[in-house]
Amino acid sequence: MLALKAINKSYGKRLILKQLSLTVNDGEVLAIVGPSGAGKTTLLRCISGLEPIDSGEIDLNGQPFDPYRNQNQDSVIGVVFQDFQLFPNLNVLENITLAPILVLKQPAATAKAKARQLLSRLALADKERLYPYQLSGGQKQRVALARALAMRPQVLCYDEPTSALDPNLRQEVAKMILSLKADGMTQIVVTHDLAFAREIADAVKHVTAL
């Protein structure tokens, strides 16, 4: 379970998050919705440890947890970025196995075998040798998802997973999220698409611009 309690965050003098609290239960999907500029992405950046919070508390499974300074080698929080941020100089398989080999110290053969399982599950089995520029948007997103999953995160975050894709892929993304939910993955989805949020989420958190 991930719980945020009374989080404050500002950039310079501009207050972005004010006394924000939320809870995500294990195996649930939380959607964070709101108009652009409401601080959805900032919230996600605080949860994933890319930004420090100014005040407040983050608990993971009942223990205080600071994602920004977390030195634990386990990737507790995984992120699928809006623009995916695959590494263009590495092929699909290398993108997925890089961190498990360097960070989790998995033997290369193990990391590859696990990556291939993820790829076949995400219908990318024949794409492992391709480079990111050779993939479609939807394929890139699934590689980014596989890369995050390979680190066995406790919570998986998505930043606007439908916005960089063709509208007809929206259903695919929803299916993907729900299938991971069936496996018990705890997920946080930032989106401005309320209908999409209702479709996938157990709970919806609304944020508004201050």
């Binding site: 995984g78 590494f87 263009p88 100089n89 890089l98 961190a99």
Partner: peptide, 26 residues
């Protein structure tokens, strides 16, 4: 793209691992 450093960071790569494997080759 600064996003490259960020995606490396959430994967828990160190700064030097990021520079060596991702930044310098690009």
């Amino acid at each position: 793209d600064p996003g490259q450093y960020e995606s490396a960071k959430v994967l828990r790569l160190t700064y030097w691992q990021t520079v060596r494997k991702i930044i310098l080759p690009q």
